[in-house]
Amino acid sequence: MTQTVQPGSAVVHTANLSLEFSTDDGPVHALSNINLDIAPGEFISLIGPSGCGKTTLLRVIADLETHTGGEIQVNGVSPREARESRAYGYVFQAPALYPWRTVRRNVMLPLEIMGVSRPEREARCAQYLDLVNLGGFENKYPWQLSGGMQQRVSIARALSVEPELLLMDEPFGALDEITRDHLNQQLLELWRKTGKTVVFVTHSIPEAVFLSSRVVVMSPRPGQVIDDISCNLPGERTLDIRETPEFLEIAHRVREGLKAGHSYDDD
């Protein structure tokens, strides 16, 4: 079921990608022989237990870590060049907002850094805050917002850069289930509207299956891809889809994949 992507057109292309950390207890294989091609417009979830390297893989794509073997290209160039050309937006696990900046100035931070003109900054800020349903909160400070709203601000901030690629590292991991469901729906809507490529790290099976056009299952020691599943769920979907046989079938396959990776073993 692995999707084939035309070489050269891939947003992310890796071949035998590996990453070894050297620690006091000897080398740790964080990533081992990852072969992955991500096509434009895909919503890919990387799922796996802690320590399977899913976040590390995302960080290698973002040039926050450097791989030690194999090759990787982002938009046809090295991750470093891609980062320097501001090819992606990155949403971290925590909102990472600046307490001394208002919501508006938080969203404008990357734009200030990139030297975007003031009127353009204002326009984009308004546009993307609207997109995450936070219009009217421009002058609030982070502490005045709930955790879910803060994370939406951080999504708006990543989008304001207008990247074609959105990298998201467990962005809803710290939120309660109800908020998380709500944000999942919003994110899906956003993806359908903007057609961006999204690489989404999670350890929640329902979240991965609900959101993604493709789920990549990873297992630890060494971090590797053990399954790559296409989800052909209808484009327009609500949370109710999680009760349907198609959804459950895919979720089952993800779970089987995780089991095969011994990720339910006691450590």
Partner: peptide, 23 residues
């Protein structure tokens, strides 16, 4: 996480200093 974030913006050391470290 904030330093990493600055890196994803390809911020210069001067920008990181004035916008993040100093405040």
């Amino acid at each position: 996480i904030l330093i990493d974030q600055m890196r994803t913006y390809s911020a210069s050391p001067t920008q990181i200093f004035f916008k993040l470290r100093l405040p």
